[in-house]
Design a protein around this nucleic acid. Structure first.
Length: 234
DNA sequence: AAACACCCCAACCGCAAATAC
DNA sequence: CGTATTTGCGGTTGGGGTGTT
């Protein structure tokens, strides 16, 4: 058995020392993120690229929040998990300063238990599931509508374009938009309703209870207004 | 005060996707 | 186009801290 701090295949493992952190920070400030495999050679760290990346992303990266998650953040996690499941990195994009690892750990220790004991939680999940099913029905109707109302579809696409901000936090929105735009025009028919479905279902659930108010901080007012409109029409 | 149980979280692993060659 | 390498993700582990008996 190889213990902490011992080397396996030449790499050091285990907890990071302040010296190692300093070397990694210096390296990233000089060369930027990425090219983790060359960190070892360039920074003089006896760590695997994987280990360096993880340390940077989860601990050293600037802007990381420390300490307990706020009730708002907790709410966002609950709602987004209901939509995406264990897509921790996706959920993390909506919680600036929080890492996927942090959210994953938090979920495990807090909600997994609660899930078992709390019927309330279970009820809510069932409710979300029910809403999703309803949305699926609506999706079918929407598809029919879209075939008649092509301009609306393009309007939504424009909204997402306008919603795109310079902040990294909007990357998921950007991702959705990209997903939509990258699809060829003919396939958007299939793509758009899925987006509607997820977003509308999520909005129905969280839009009014205030828990997810933090989420809206990432979108500009115009986008929020349009999204409310979109969801209302569904 | 000691033993035990539980919680929290940093860091690891394996796998898959993305990218480079 | 196929292979090798790198990167990113989700699941899991294990050690330290804290609470309970």
């Amino acid at each position: 058995m190889i213990g902490w701090g011992m080397q396996e295949q030449g790499w050091r493992k285990g907890p990071w020392t302040p010296e190692e952190d300093k070397l990694l920070c210096e390296y990233v400030s000089l060369h930027g993120e990425g090219r983790w495999s060359s960190v070892t050679r360039s920074a003089g760290l006896n760590r695997s690229g994987k280990s360096c990346r993880l340390r940077w992303v989860n601990y050293l990266r600037p802007g990381l929040k420390r300490g307990q998650l706020t009730p708002q953040e907790e709410g966002i996690i609950i709602e987004l998990h209901a939509i995406w499941g264990n897509k921790w990195s996706t959920i993390a994009r909506y919680l600036p300063g929080r890492t996927d690892n942090e959210i994953k750990n938090y979920w495990r220790t807090h909600f997994k238990k609660k899930e078992k004991s709390s019927q309330k939680q279970e009820k809510r999940k069932q409710q979300i599931l029910k809403q999703k099913q309803q949305q699926q029905q609506l999706q079918l109707q929407l598809q029919q509508q879209q075939q008649v109302q092509q301009p609306q579809e393009h309007d939504i696409k424009t909204v997402f374009s306008q919603a795109e901000t310079s902040t990294e936090e909007m990357s998921e929105t950007h991702g959705i938009r990209q997903q939509m735009v990258l699809k060829n025009p003919n396939s958007e028919d299939q793509c758009m309703p899925k987006m509607y479905q997820d977003f509308a279902s999520w909005f129905d659930t969280v839009g009014d209870d205030g828990l997810s108010s933090g989420l809206w901080n990432f979108a500009d007012d115009y986008t929020v207004a349009r999204m409310r409109q979109v969801c209302a029409t569904n």
